[in-house]
């Protein structure tokens, strides 16, 4: 569904994405993993068209997304840090989003109900805590039944109950056959949510396979262990190549 080919992104001298090539198919759930500053968010933003690639190609359903915007109808995006017009009330924000995508007739307000957001509809965005903000972001991402969901650190800052609600929702959507891309530091969460694993380090895709395969390779049963082992192996490899 999303095809990324030789994607490069440079911010000045700094190379953030280096020849990233991925093929993300629908019905799968990808865990996008990597240390801070490895380029995860840049990759996501490139897919959304918010960051313009230096070179390379991104296709959505076989169509180049450069200067396109219509394809975003099919993406629900939950940003890492939800930034919203500070003076808006939650209710107004939700209304605005619905209003802007008027063509979507039936909306999915399951999360709004589950998070009980309607109770605080008249609160302004700048009064919200980080967690509540995350809830708003999540609710908005799922609002339009989008076939593709891109979730950047979805569980960060959420309380345990809300984390469970969100996880349930993600799993539900996965079962519906949607393409889901999640980045998270909390690897145990990803273990449950994802089937595929993409590891990015210094702008390069270091690993791209199913989680099952990863566990087998590293002889670990839990994802976080598996990833740590993977990272250690990579670091070892790097230090050897550096010494050479």
């Amino acid at each position: 569904m999303i095809l990324i080919n030789d994607l490069c992104k440079k911010f000045g001298k700094l190379t953030v994405l280096d020849q990233v090539s991925l093929n993300l198919g629908s019905g799968k759930s990808y865990a996008l993993v990597g240390p801070n500053g490895s380029g995860k968010t840049t990759l996501i933003k490139s897919v959304l068209g918010m960051v313009r690639p230096s070179s390379g190609l991104i296709q959505f359903n076989g169509k180049d997304i450069a200067n396109e915007w219509k394809y975003r109808e099919q993406i629900g995006y939950m940003p890492q840090i939800g930034r919203y017009p500070e003076n808006m009330r939650i209710g107004e924000l939700v209304d605005m989003m619905k209003n802007i995508r008027k063509e979507v007739k039936t909306v999915d307000e399951e999360l709004i109900d589950a998070f009980k957001l309607y109770k605080i509809y008249d609160k302004r965005m700048h009064t919200l805590s980080g967690g509540t903000r995350q809830k708003v972001s999540a609710s908005l991402a799922f609002l339009f039944h989008s076939p593709v969901l891109i979730l950047d650190e979805p569980t960060a800052g959420l309380d345990p109950v809300s984390v469970e609600i969100l996880k349930e929702k993600i799993l539900h959507e996965r079962r519906m056959g949607k393409l889901i891309i999640i980045t998270s530091h909390i690897l145990s969460d990803l273990d449950e949510l994802s089937t595929e694993m993409i590891y990015i380090f210094e702008g390069k895709v270091q690993y791209n396979n199913s989680i099952e395969a990863l566990k087998e390779e590293t002889h670990e049963t839990r994802l976080n262990k598996a990833v740590t082992t993977l990272i250690k192996q990579k670091e070892l490899l790097n230090s050897i190549t550096e010494q050479l």
């Binding site: 915007w69 940003p79 930034r83 919203y84 017009p85 500070e86 995508r101």
Partner: peptide
């Protein structure tokens, strides 16, 4: 600059830049 958030939000929506 204070509506940067709004612009960001809109950019993730199916709206032309």
């Amino acid at each position: 600059f204070s509506s940067y958030e709004f612009i960001e939000l809109m950019l993730a929506q199916p709206i032309n830049r």
